[in-house]
Design a protein around this nucleic acid. Sequence first.
DNA 1: GTCTATATAACGATAGAC
DNA 2: GTCTATCGTTATATAGAC
Lengths: 211, 211
Amino acid sequence: MRTIDPEKHRQRRMRIVEAAVALFAEKGLAATSTADICRAAGISTGNLFHYFASKQEVFHGIFELDRDEWDHHFAAAAADPDPWHALTVVIDRVAADTAHPVVAGLLVEMVAQSHRDPVTARLVAEGDARMVRGIGALVRRMVEAGTADPGMAAEEAARWVLTLVESFYGRGYPEPGRDRAADVATVKLLVARVLRYRGPGPQEDPDDAHT
Amino acid sequence: MRTIDPEKHRQRRMRIVEAAVALFAEKGLAATSTADICRAAGISTGNLFHYFASKQEVFHGIFELDRDEWDHHFAAAAADPDPWHALTVVIDRVAADTAHPVVAGLLVEMVAQSHRDPVTARLVAEGDARMVRGIGALVRRMVEAGTADPGMAAEEAARWVLTLVESFYGRGYPEPGRDRAADVATVKLLVARVLRYRGPGPQEDPDDAHT
DNA sequence: GTCTATATAACGATAGAC
DNA sequence: GTCTATCGTTATATAGAC
C-alpha cells in the first residue's frame, strides 16, 4: 500500500488549527496573516496551503474541535438520572470554557463571521442546533417528570436557556465588580425561573416567600 | 473671525461615519479599506484623513450615533408613569433596531472589537452602562411600587434583562422557523419571570394556572 | 479643503527546488 | 512533504498640486 497517511494528515491539520485559535481570538480572522499562523504552528510560510486551500478553511476547522466534545457531554447528560442536575453541569461547563479570554474572544469572532460568511453561518447554526437539541432533551425530561413547565416547546425553551448561558461570553471589557461564581449561580436561578422549574434541587432562594 | 466651521466639520465627520457603518457591518473593520469608506462617502481617497487620524477612529465615531438617541429614549421612559410599559417600549425599540441586518452585523462587530481594542471596549462599556442605568431605574420603580421582586439589586437585574434583550442581535444565520413578533412577546414574558413582575400588564400567559 | 499621486509595506497564494 | 523565493495585489497614510 502506498497511500501513506490518512490519519497523520488529519493530525497535522488540527495542529495548525490549534495554533491559529489563539491568533484568531486575539486579532480576528482578517487581521491574522497566514504567515502568523505558520509561525505559531512551527511550519514554513507557504506550507499551510498544503493542508488548507485558504485562510478561511483554517477558521472553519475550529468548529471540529468543539463538535466531538459536546456530543460526548450530552451523551453523559442523557445518562444522568436527574435532568436538572445534568443541565447545571452543562451550565458549569460553558462557564468554565468561557472563563478563558481566548475562548471568549474566539466565540464572538465566530458569531461576527457568521454574519458575513455563509459557511461559518452554517457551522455556527449546526453548533447551536446541537446545544439546543441537547438542552431541549433535558427540558423535555423535566416537563415529562412534572418538575418544569416552561409554557412553550422544549427546544424553544432550550433556546432561551442558551441565551442566558451565552451571557458568559462576556463583552470584552473588564468588569471588576463581577464575581463569576455568583454569575453562574444567578444564571441557574434565572434558568429555573424561565423553565418554571419546581423540582428538587437549588432552584430558588431560601427567602423566596416575599411578604 | 476666521475660524470657519466647528459645526460643518462635525457634520462632515458624521457623514463619513454613516457611510462606513454599512461597510463595517457587512465586512468587518479589518476587511473594510479606507478607500471603500471614501468611495461610499463620496470623497476622494486620502480625504478621510483630514477628519480622522485612522480607520479605527472612524469606527469609534459610530458610538456617538447611538448615545444621544438612547439618552433621549430613557428620558422619555423616566417620564412614563408605568415603568413596566416603559420597559416594554425599550424592548420593542431594541427589537426594531436589530431587525435591520446592518445594525445586527454592526453590533456583533462592536462586541468582537471590544475584545481586542481597549478604546472600543470602553465605548461598549459606556453604552452598556447607559442601558443598565436606564433599565435599572425602571426596575427600581417597579420594586418600590411592589410590582416586581427580582431578589437582587435593580441594576444587577437590569443586566440580566439586557442579556435577554440581546438575543435580538441574532446569530448571523437565517432562522426561517422564527417569528420576530413572537420572540418579542416571549422576551417580555421571560423578562417578567426574571423580575418576578406581578403588576398590571400582560406579564404572563392567561393559562398560567398549570394543573 | 479637496484632489491626485504615491511611498512603503504586507498580504494571500503559488512555483519549483530539494 | 517541506522548504525558499516571489508574483501580483492591495493596504494605510502622506505629500504636494490646485
